[in-house]
Every structure is written in structure tokens, then in C-alpha cells.
């Protein structure tokens, strides 16, 4: 691929990404926010974070070894640590270290 074409492809991807990010603001942002959008703004973050958690775990294989066990154990550790101490950094570090140990040494 020539450098010119590579630049064009990067520009296209950047343009489409920006379009997706700006579109809601351009279409819905100028007037007084309709009640329906205010409502979505309040409930959507809960649903989106649920969706993102599932999105991150999309490649686990529940029916085949290791049955998603490293992911599920580490995710459970994050939840328990967070319920216990409610310290975001501790929950993330604890879960990540456990996950690294699990994939590098336990479920090789």
C-alpha cells in the first residue's frame, strides 16, 4: 500500500469515528433537551456499563476448557474486593494480578 493510501484510510477511520461521537450532539444537542433524552441520559449509563462488561468478556468459552474460569474468578474477585473496601484502585489491581497469575500459571 502506498503511503498516500494509508493516510487516506487513517483519515477515513478517524472521520467515521468522530462522526459517530459527534452525531448525537449535533442532532439532539442544540435545542432544549427533550425529557426523553434526559431520561435516557439517566438510565443508559447503567445499561451501557453492563454491556461493556459483557463486551470485555465476549471471547470466553463457557463450553470448552478453561470454561471462562480465569475471567469469572478474577471478575468475582474485583466485585468482592470492591464491595469490601470500595477502593477502585485496589479492586482493579487485585483483580488484574489474580487474572495474570491464573492465565500464566494456573490455566496455562
Amino acid at each position: 500500500m502506498t503511503d498516500t493510501k494509508a493516510v487516506i484510510l487513517i483519515a477515513v477511520s478517524a472521520g467515521v469515528t468522530a462522526l459517530l461521537r459527534f452525531l448525537p450532539f449535533v442532532l439532539l444537542g442544540s435545542r432544549k433537551t427533550p425529557g426523553f433524552i434526559t431520561y435516557l441520559g439517566r438510565v443508559l449509563p447503567y445499561a451501557i456499563m453492563g454491556m461493556l462488561v459483557v463486551y470485555c468478556l465476549r471471547n470466553i468459552t463457557p463450553l470448552v476448557w478453561p470454561h471462562g474460569l480465569p475471567e469469572l474468578l478474577a471478575a468475582a474477585a474485583v466485585v468482592l474486593l470492591h464491595l469490601w473496601k470500595r477502593n477502585t484502585l485496589l479492586s482493579i489491581a487485585g483483580g488484574t494480578v489474580l487474572y495474570m497469575v491464573l492465565v500464566q500459571f494456573v490455566f496455562q
Binding site: Y46, M49, V53, E71, A75, H82, R86, I92, T96, M100
Partner: peptide, 22 residues
């Protein structure tokens, strides 16, 4: 050996999810 360190992102989303839940 950094295998598995990308779980940090998943863990971040889980803590936000739990925090919102509470």
C-alpha cells in the same frame, strides 16, 4: 510476561458497574 495485564480494563468497567449498582 505481560499476558493478562489487559484485564485491567475489564476490571475498571466492573468496578464502575458495582459502584453504580450500589
Amino acid at each position: 510476561n505481560t499476558a493478562g495485564i489487559d484485564f485491567a480494563m475489564t476490571a475498571l468497567f466492573i468496578t464502575v458497574f458495582v459502584e453504580q449498582w450500589l
